[in-house]
Design a protein around this nucleic acid. Sequence first.
DNA 1: TGAATACTAGAGTGACTGCTCTAGGAAAGG
DNA 2: CCTTTCCTAGAGCAGTCACTCTAGTATTCA
Lengths: 199, 199
Amino acid sequence: MARTIDPVRHEARRTAIIDAALTCFAADGFDRATTAAICRTAGIGSGTFFHYFPTKLDVLLAVLELGTAETVAWFAAQQGRTDVGGVLVDHVVHSAAEFADPRVAGFVRAVGAVMNDERVAAALARDEAAVLDGLLPWVEAAQAAGEVRDDVPAARLCAWVLVVLDGFLGRLAGESGFAAAAERDMLVDTVRRLLAPAG
Amino acid sequence: MARTIDPVRHEARRTAIIDAALTCFAADGFDRATTAAICRTAGIGSGTFFHYFPTKLDVLLAVLELGTAETVAWFAAQQGRTDVGGVLVDHVVHSAAEFADPRVAGFVRAVGAVMNDERVAAALARDEAAVLDGLLPWVEAAQAAGEVRDDVPAARLCAWVLVVLDGFLGRLAGESGFAAAAERDMLVDTVRRLLAPAG
DNA sequence: TGAATACTAGAGTGACTGCTCTAGGAAAGG
DNA sequence: CCTTTCCTAGAGCAGTCACTCTAGTATTCA
């Protein structure tokens, strides 16, 4: 036998490629971000790139999966909290904080170009499910506590929270002078109004 | 001299190409929608295509400009109304109705792939300005009448109405079972809550 | 009618890009 | 040490696509 793989080194290299790809996708979109550019950004040759990922699309999928995992981890960390309203607000704040990475908005737009692909659609569905499943029990609890309106089913409310979050993220890229930090409070307020009991 | 151009015939042909391009862009995105596919959809040869538009990108710009013109025309038609709140609601309803064309969401995503282009950015800025400028006087009037909150400047409120509208549009493409018609009332309600005076 | 020009079609071209292939360097085991 | 496998690089290939060119047709004016 000979040389075994070093999982740490392997994972680090892989992550570096993912990060470079995220940068390129965000800047140029999926189709215009060439594999050559990603390799240059990561400081590797194309041979290395295709050693780690069979396809350019697979890197994009890896980025998506990283995001989904982060979401799942965040909700797992909230287990046991009793201030249901606080969790909802914190989730919005947490999302806004992630959007502060200027690459996020560009990457989301890049994903739009390959949404038709079956694997991408599945990954997006998983990602969305992670957020909705994470949010749902808290919204239900808040409804039971009378903190959130109950004239609309909890699942639909969750979907509408995503509407606002997605809209917020979408505006961060245009040069409309829309800054994540400056608009964060307004975002929280908007979600609050969306969820407030009918009055 | 000989043969002069027939403006009617010319415009009709041009519009047909724009419509075919809209269909293709919406379905496949900007880079994956080939000029060949657009020509096939429009039932023309590539010679005709490039006779009307110097570049594939120019067709996309033409689509954007058509949209901007439509927005300007709609707001012009509201001139003289006195029910300021009604105008705001009508605008949301009108937007939702436009989104009912399933190509709109796909097209917006397609535009995202070429947002970095200078001309596209300028066209998007014009489009956004058309909506904001159209909305602003009505929001200001509603504030003066006490129908809309005034703890936030009117311009910023307008930007946030766009956040919600964009988020709504963005969700129409995923297969999340999000339908324009079914969610319209919720959209109106969400904007109402966003604009309601602080309570 | 004839000439000039708008319009149309589609084959061809040049450039680009995702990915493969080969050749070799480096690390782990024996 | 040697062998085996992992890892890396970058030249090259096959395919694709926006756009050009040419040749011809339709339409209007004199």
